[in-house]
Design a protein around this nucleic acid. Structure first.
Lengths: 204, 204
DNA sequence: TCACGGTTTCAGAACATTCTGAAAGCGCCG
DNA sequence: CGGCGCTTTCAGAATGTTCTGAAACCGTGA
């Protein structure tokens, strides 16, 4: 804290407040993480890189978030894998620096892309398999109509199909959002939101 | 296992296969859960109720999933809170029974509604607060243009605003999907998916 | 009012995840 | 080639989450 007497306001205060605001952003983003199946630290590291906006190296991150080298390294690598943080270098410095994607829509497109391939695709595959498990049985049952077992099998298959259809639709929707053509979808969403918004607010 | 010799196929086998298919569905759904910040058991209970399609009571659930009474009770209550499972009763039976919402789109609408109010709303509130933290500082800085501190504050505010705008849009979008008018959105999504789908597949 | 079938609660046990720090790995430069 | 600066790895510690089971609770019928 370097407070010059007589000029006790602007320079020191501004830096402190900014840092506090950044820390709160990091904390909030970290909270969010748990609820979405992402590890807290990973989210915090990303939040830090995003809100600071400048390249940081492993030591910067360690010190700012008070985490171990191992943890920082792991989190940064994971963020690279997700494609929402990139490596950067400074001349005359052998350290690696990292920067977060700064365009919010690009950021979320990357996240959606990852989650679809990591979670929805395997889910769809599993659902197909499960539906096929009872297919032979249903064929048999079909020969014997009015059977109660048959009705059960059919209802079961109908429920699986409903799920399948939903996730197929979701996947297509996401694919459109993610693809280069997805800008259109983004624009549509923004427009939709604007027309429906009850009242826009702005700080004075 | 009651296998009648000579007629060793349809009746016993069908029940077994169906049960296996159900179990796999439950397992898959449970896996999914972790990745989305939902407890595994809760998801499994829901999956069971959905795929079985008939009302089940606490003991049924306990036995089928091999979980304790306490756990079953907690999970069922949570599912009721989420509004995706409902109580049901059978005449002459004092036990409570539970049924899962069977319409997939209604199900996901309920989930989206919950997550928005539980996670996005508080997030938005926090982001507004954080942006306002630096507002007074920025006013000061404005008097002293060309200042480096000012540029930093502005960049910081810009990043927060980008996030805010994104989540506002998301919220509006979700609100449209969730609202009664949201059927329109659903139809649009289905249509979009159909037109873009490379090739539809169907079991023979 | 009590006894009874059923449900909820919760402290502590079991389990799972995340984090640390020291050691190993990697590639560059002299 | 050997030392150096930096990054990655991973076994075990720390922490956080979920589950159990027994006790408390609740409402109903006798």
């Amino acid at each position: 804290m370097d407070i010059h007497p007589g000029l006790c306001d602007t320079p020191g205060m501004t830096a402190t407040t900014l840092r506090e605001a950044q820390d709160r952003f990091v904390a909030v983003w970290g909270q969010m993480a748990g609820a979405w199946g992402v590890s807290r630290t990973m989210a915090e590291v990303h939040a830090l890189l995003y809100i600071v906006g400048e390249p940081m190296n492993t030591d910067d991150v360690m010190e700012r978030l008070q985490i171990s080298r191992g943890n920082a390294s792991m989190s940064l690598r994971a963020l690279l894998d997700w494609g929402i943080v990139e490596r950067a270098h400074k001349r005359g410095d052998r350290k690696e620096y990292f920067v977060a994607e700064q365009d919010v829509w690009t950021l979320f497109r990357a996240i959606v892309r990852q989650r679809i391939t990591r979670e929805v695709d395997p889910l769809l595959a599993a659902l197909y398999e499960i539906r096929d498990m009872t297919a032979p049985e249903r064929k048999h049952a079909r020969a014997d109509p009015g059977d109660e077992a048959r009705a059960k099998l059919d209802a079961h298959a109908r429920r699986l199909d409903a799920m399948l259809e939903f996730f197929q639709t979701l996947e297509q929707f996401a694919a459109t959002f993610v693809s280069p053509a997805g800008r259109g979808l983004q624009a549509a969403a923004v427009l939709l939101a604007k027309t429906h918004r009850p009242r826009a607010e702005q700080a004075p």
